[in-house]
Write a protein that binds this DNA or RNA. Structure first.
Lengths: 194, 194
DNA sequence: ACACCATGTCATTCCCCGTTGACATCGCCG
DNA sequence: CGGCGATGTCAACGGGGAATGACATGGTGT
């Protein structure tokens, strides 16, 4: 389990279904993002939430339900628009140049999506949710000529960078880092600008 | 399991350790590529290979060993260079525009890598192998100024496109398809050319 | 203060899947 | 032809993890 931010209250919280539900959901998002569907264990999630695993069943109807809920909750459309159009490319590029362990909260969502997309068990859940809540807003944000195709491509590049960062074992440094940022920024920006 | 190309011979093959080993390996590559480490089951792999699950243990020392062998076998350096420099971008773009189910053999390897990279269980295995056998050749092939960074980025985009295709539920059609191909080709080609 | 429902806890069960070891059979070599 | 090692088959085991249901407990309304 290794050191997930303890969402469990020091003193056990008062009996409050909504609060525990929320705590479970929060813990689940972290675990799923970090470990994927198969690698995340209900016991661990429950423990981090300061709750009992059995409650997951009660509140979410099982692991699938929990995942679906976490997914739905993760891709609520706010937070997507908050990029600056001008500095978008460079901002993302910088973020991606950092090492995987220095995660920004902003990429947690994408990490989650990545895991969801690449786990055959959960991929089916994605389509509807992603299309409606994710690609839609991105398309709008991106705007202009051929926005749908460009949005697709943008999302793809983003995900790809995420994976690359995931696999990368040592931090990017020196000149390579600079070039990487430069090229990545250009690539992304070209998709937004035009 | 759903309809994997039957590698099992019609009439059971003569006792031949090498042949069964190979059959198991072939089946494993398919299953791992399709379902990831966790989602691939030894019984299924063995069944597809027309062998018994116990043999996996004998020949590969367990699931881990089988995965490692499949990984190693998948990323033998040949087959990477066989892209034409000039038409590279467009070729890949076309491939990615196709629906996920119309897989080309050429992308199987990447699919495998993707699955391997995104499964926390197997990611550690990747670094050495990928760096040595994969990124190295790509760097060389790509050549020119800042090749390492560009190779990284190229690989990232490739993987991202793979994921996008994985998630995409309906085929790209009409104008969107054209624009997608156009932009994707340009993006990729720009990384190779320069 | 009492009762009743919602909330939480615990132990248990069940299932899946990798692994293991005992056993069967084939084929080669003397 | 006979035996022995290599190859293949089968059934069973064991661990891990999700799900289940019985039980405990708090809290709220009357």
């Amino acid at each position: 389990m290794t050191n997930v931010a303890a969402l469990a209250p020091e003193r056990p919280r008062k009996r409050d279904a909504d609060a525990t539900r929320a705590a479970i959901l929060a813990a689940a998002k972290i675990h799923f993002a970090r470990s994927g569907y198969d690698g995340a264990f209900l016991r661990d999630i429950a423990a981090d939430a300061g709750a009992d695993a059995a409650l997951i069943n009660r509140y979410f109807g099982g692991k699938d339900g929990l995942f679906a809920a976490a997914l739905k909750d993760s891709i609520s459309p706010d937070g997507i628009y908050q990029w600056d159009r001008k500095s978008f490319g460079r901002e993302i590029a910088r973020m991606m140049a950092n090492h995987a362990h220095e995660h920004s909260d902003r990429t947690h969502v994408f990490q989650f999506l990545l895991r969801a997309a690449t786990s055959p068990a959960t991929a089916p859940l994605l389509n509807e949710a992603v299309q409606a809540r994710f690609m839609g807003p991105i398309r709008e944000w991106i705007g202009g000529e051929g926005a749908p195709a460009r949005a697709r491509l943008l999302a793809a590049v983003f995900i790809g960078l995420l994976v690359e960062r995931l696999v990368r074992d040592e931090p990017l440094q020196g000149e390579e880092r600079e070039i990487f940022i430069e090229r990545t920024a250009g690539l992304l920006q070209s998709l937004v600008d035009n």
